[in-house]
Design a protein around this nucleic acid. Structure first.
Lengths: 207, 207, 207, 207
DNA sequence: CATGAATGAGTCTTCATTCAT
DNA sequence: AATGAATGAAGACTCATTCAT
């Protein structure tokens, strides 16, 4: 009854785990379900993973690593602060939309992580937030008064948009990714008092 | 271990369940934990509840009922559309901040609900979203072009803010509730092209 | 299907565990077997015990406590050192014969105990050995040369006899308990150069 | 992790198994542990053994064969019954001290053997006991009354000493093997009413 | 010969639920 | 109402064993 073979099994397991964690939550997903979704027996899982927690840890650490890398790559080489912010926001929203499943798990199942791994992931999250805060701060540097508290609220709002996009965006849905990305990017820039790219007259642009 | 007795036990159970569902998730919480947190034995729970799902259903339906009621009460009696929107946003953010725990559970554990209850809760959520969409639509009615898609994105963004506030706001935290509420309310209004209350010059106001 | 009821279940479990640990070893015995031997389901065991290790710990600690208590009671009130030694040996062998099962487990499954409990049991064993060594030392006090090493070898030999009796003695067997006890007691006394009670001419007496 | 290669692997496996069975018991030892202790993967074990039981069977049969052979060789060529007994006891105790690990396993894990092998090993044990009984009977042949029951108790006591020595004797320990052997041999002879070799004045001699 | 992956039965333990007392 | 004991299913994980490579 050997269905899956070779080094692809490990990936298939991670993928199945991600999908099930997303739909049912970590605690609500049994290894039996994961195994059967891959087409192997429960015991066989242990040829590829250390345990259930392992699946979650790897998933969340990969997601955070990818997110940080994407964000850094997005702004690399850009000089103008506003341009950097715009690129960062674009990446931010795009990542949350395209990797919505992984991001959702990352936001939801932090508590299921063992302390050690949780600390690592939280540290990565904090760093990501600092990245955003930095982009915002640089972009609004020329403006009159922007308090630290406001900076934090803005950062939170940006994070909130990403998190929420990850909640509802689906590629098969009725909204095009580009539209979502541009609308929210423009909205955030406008909110910060910065002129959106080609300054569309409408509050949020059109699909 | 609070050893609650008498008719208050049922409430204590609901409260304990909410707290534990919030911290560990529905699937990650055992009735044993809930019972021990109330100070009774597991079996005794069944004198007050029908089962584990019951606890979650009641919790989420109460939360949605309260949210809808609060929102309706907030705009009742107000005529001016912008004023109504402002009042609605105020209520929206305030509710998500003060009832953050229940709101968080409502957003996270929908999947754990049995289909019948899930449909009821989803229906309530949809109605709440329509309420917001209505407030926004009325408030921007005079403005040039606001497409249906934009209306939806705006609604989503408003919901996103609430959801996210529920994620991080804590009464003991460093930000005053009033500041958070006003900052975000103003930001959303400005985003919609409506002049915030007394039109503060700063993007987000000060603490 | 509730067969056993009331507070006797806990005792029945301990008894079944002792019997099975004796016949199959701790690691070779499953909780399923214990439960089925008591007439309950596996899960029900956990209403009475903390876990599998618990069964072994309690068993071994009870055995050691009983052994120490029996030995102390046996020599209490006796003054003459040789009489005390004889009484101690009588108790020693009798206990190992009548509680052979528990003693066997105690000797065999020490390694299966978690470190903490193991230390406690080993401490009790050491104390029991000191008790025997003390009895021997007092009884041979008047004799010429008895080195410390010999004292140890004698103690070991006495322990060895007990351990081995626990290996083969069965009440239904062909040897009477009294005969075994007296033969070995006399042999040990003679070995120590002390005249057995009524000095029978034969090396080991007759049944 | 000794990474043994070539034809020595089979021996390394048997050795590792013996060591682990001794420390953790047969049921408490997994093939995984044995394999990892040899430095190979579990599956590779099956190139050298038939299965787990195989390891135990071979071990116990070898031990019994060695013990019987040693005992037979020890008395071969000797005529005087007391000299034969002395030589037999010397061999008995020496073997139990030097092969204490294997002997301990042989005494402890009989129950883990499949019926067929168990019968074979038990038969060898019985034969060994008969050897001892024969030596004792011949040596005390000239003495007044020695009943059959006493003969059995004496044999048991001799076996007991061996078994117990196997329990505590360690080459690195504080007692020299020769001292242990001579002390116990003398004690047993004296017990049987036979004069120890050169009749030391002390009950047990000194190290 | 060694490996890594697979199996299926088994391990201990926890779970939600029931119910006599 | 509360308890303690029972159930049976399910949980994660380990095991001895097999076998294609």
């Amino acid at each position: 009854m050997r269905r899956t073979r070779g080094p692809r099994t490990a990936e298939a397991i991670q993928e199945a785990a991600a999908e099930l964690f997303f739909r049912q939550g970590y605690a609500g997903t049994s290894l039996r379900e994961i195994a059967s979704s891959v087409g192997i027996q429960v015991g066989s899982l242990y040829n590829h993973i250390e345990g259930k927690e392992d699946l979650l840890s790897r998933l969340m650490e990969h997601t955070m690593a990818d997110l940080l890398a994407a964000m850094r790559a997005a702004v690399t080489g850009l000089e103008d602060p506003v341009q950097r912010l715009r690129a960062g926001l674009d990446c931010h929203i795009r990542f949350h939309a395209t990797r919505s499943r992984d991001v959702f798990i990352g936001n939801t199942e932090l508590r299921a992580l063992p302390p050690r791994e949780r600390r690592r992931v939280v540290a990565a999250r904090d760093e990501y937030e600092r990245l955003i805060t930095g982009l915002v701060a640089d972009a609004v540097a020329g403006q009159p008064t922007t308090t630290a508290v406001d900076l934090r609220l803005h950062t939170y709002a940006i994070v909130a948009i990403g998190t929420h996009v990850a909640t509802w965006y689906r590629p098969q849905g009725s909204m095009s990714l580009d539209h979502v990305v541009q609308s929210y990017t423009d909205a955030i820039l406008r909110q910060l008092g910065l002129t959106p790219r080609t300054a569309p007259a409408q509050p949020l642009g059109m699909p």
